[in-house]
Amino acid sequence: MVFDFHYVITSFITAVHYIPVTLALSLIPLFIGIVFGTLIAVCRKFRIRFIAPLADIIIPVVKGIPLVLHLFIMNFLILKPFDLLAQYYAWADVIRFMDKVYIAIIAISIYAVIIISETMRSALMSVSEGQYEACYSVGLTRWQALRRVVLPQVFPVAIPVLGNNLIGLIKGSSVVYLITVVDVMNGALTTAQINYRFLEAYIAAALIYWGICLLTERLFAVWENHMKKYQLGSAKNNLRQEVL
Rank of each mutant, 00 (worst) to 15 (best):
Phe198Gly: 05
Val35Leu: 13
Arg142Leu: 12
Glu133Met: 10
Ile194Ala: 14
Lys45Glu: 12
Leu166Met: 04
His6Asn: 12
Val16Gln: 10
Glu118His: 06
Arg44Tyr: 05
Ala107Met: 08
Phe36Asn: 01
Pro152Phe: 06
Asn238Met: 02
Ile115Trp: 07
Asn238Phe: 08
Phe31His: 06
Tyr89Ala: 11
Glu224His: 11
Ile103Ser: 04
Ile78Cys: 08
Lys45Thr: 02
Tyr89Gly: 02
Ala145Phe: 09
Ile19Val: 15
Asn164Asp: 09
Ser128Ala: 11
Asp56Glu: 08
Gly168Thr: 03
Arg96His: 13
Ser137Lys: 07
Leu207Glu: 00
Phe72Gly: 13
Arg197Asp: 09
Lys228Cys: 05
Ala188Ile: 07
Gly168Ile: 02
Val222Cys: 06
Tyr136Cys: 03
Gln87Gly: 14
Asn238Pro: 00
Pro53Cys: 01
Phe3Tyr: 03
Ile51Asp: 02
Trp223Gln: 12
Thr216Glu: 04
Val101Ser: 13
Leu85Met: 13
Asn186Gln: 15
Pro29Glu: 03
Gly233Val: 04
Tyr196Ser: 12
Phe3Val: 01
Tyr102Asp: 02
Ile208Tyr: 01
Pro60Tyr: 10
Val184Asn: 01
Ala52Trp: 05
Ile28Met: 09
Thr38Ile: 08
Cys213Phe: 08
Met74Thr: 11
Pro60Cys: 04
Asn195Met: 06
Gln153Ser: 02
Leu166Asn: 01
Leu199Met: 13
Trp223Thr: 14
Leu162Ala: 03
Val42Leu: 14
Glu224Gly: 00
Val138Gly: 00
Leu54Asn: 05
Leu39Lys: 10
Cys135Ile: 09
Tyr202Lys: 04
Ile48Thr: 01
Val182Trp: 09
Val94Ser: 14
Ser117Phe: 08
Lys171Gln: 13
Phe76Pro: 04
Ile103Pro: 01
Tyr209Ala: 03
Thr119Met: 12
Ile95Glu: 06
Pro20Tyr: 10
Ser109Met: 09
Val2Tyr: 12
Gln131Pro: 05
Val42Asp: 06
Leu67Cys: 09
Phe3Cys: 05
His17Lys: 12
Val113Trp: 07
Met227Pro: 08
Gly33Ala: 12
Ile106His: 07
Ile57Arg: 10
Leu146Pro: 01
Met227Arg: 13
Leu239Pro: 00
Lys63Tyr: 10
Trp223His: 10
Leu124His: 00
Arg218Ala: 15
Glu242Asn: 09
Val62Ile: 15
Pro29Cys: 05
Leu239Ala: 00
Phe31Asn: 05
Ala192His: 04
Arg96Ser: 14
Ile9His: 11
Ile170Phe: 11
Val184Gly: 03
Met125Val: 12
Arg218Lys: 14
Ile9Gln: 14
Ile170Lys: 02
Arg121Ile: 03
Ser137Pro: 01
Leu207Ala: 00
Leu77Arg: 05
Arg121Met: 09
